[in-house]
Nucleic acid binder design. Structure first.
Length: 129
DNA sequence: GGGGTGACTTTAT
DNA sequence: CATAAAGCCACCC
């Protein structure tokens, strides 16, 4: 089906799919800075699309990964969210190499976060009560 | 067009 | 602070 206008931003085209937008945005993250999945999603107009962002990075193939600084995307609270395996270690090492310091396995988003003023994710959930 | 999936996030116990 | 459960989203079959 012709995907509906998923681009929520007026200056964004929907030709490139959400994933591409994610890649484009991440590609602009300055070296030594990080951003959370939730922030990326929010910037693309999907406040609750953090999970979708993770999806975009998950399907990144090797060649594409070379052009997208995926390691600069971290979980809420500045924690490495990559699943077990070779992931967390590599990401942490890369960030360290860029000057990002870890505090008990976490990153101070107020210092290294590109959007220190923007919440990692809007609080609008209510599992119950 | 329905359903599964997961590099998320938050709230509750 | 650790574990559990539940929303939310876009992509793919």
């Amino acid at each position: 089906m012709a995907r509906q206008n998923r681009a929520r931003r007026p200056d964004e085209t929907d030709e490139a799919g959400f994933f591409e937008e994610v890649y484009a945005l991440i590609a602009q993250i300055p070296r030594g800075r990080v951003v959370t999945y939730g922030q990326v999603a929010a910037l693309l107009g999907v406040p609750r699309g953090a999970r979708a962002v993770g999806w975009a990075l998950r399907v990144l193939d090797e060649s594409r990964a070379a052009t997208v600084p995926w390691h600069r995307v971290v979980g809420a609270g500045g924690r490495i969210s990559l699943r077990a395996g070779s992931g967390p270690t590599v990401q942490r090492r890369r960030l360290r190499a860029e000057g990002v310091r870890f505090r008990n396995g976490r990153i101070d988003l107020t210092r290294y976060g590109v959007l220190s003023s923007l919440p990692t994710s809007p609080r609008a959930q209510r599992p119950s009560s």
